[in-house]
């Protein structure tokens, strides 16, 4: 009996989670432009203190 209840619960929880994710993904895609959602670039971190990165962040270069 408990196993049957667990099986039904498993189906219900799976359906709810799947539906929520699909709904949310569609909602986000409608609310935001494709350009915005796909704007990410490869990450950066404290390696930006390297000489090459300092040059990229050089304010004089930024205004040039």
């Amino acid at each position: 009996m408990i196993v049957h209840v667990a099986e039904y619960l498993a189906w219900i929880i799976s359906a709810l989670l799947g539906a929520w994710m699909l709904f949310d993904a569609i909602k986000v895609s409608r609310e935001h432009s494709e350009e915005f959602l796909t704007t990410s670039v490869e990450g950066t971190d404290e390696l930006l203190t390297s000489s090459a990165a300092e040059e990229i962040l050089d304010p004089t270069e930024e205004t040039a």
Binding site: S40, V41, E55, I56, P59
Partner: peptide, 27 residues
């Protein structure tokens, strides 16, 4: 610097880890 490197404001946005002044998303 390698060709195709990001603009400085883009780099800062990504380093901040979110959506910055340029509107660029990041993980």
């Amino acid at each position: 610097v390698m060709p195709g490197s990001p603009r400085p404001d883009d780099v800062r946005t990504a380093a901040a880890g979110g959506q910055g002044p340029t509107g660029r998303l990041a993980l």
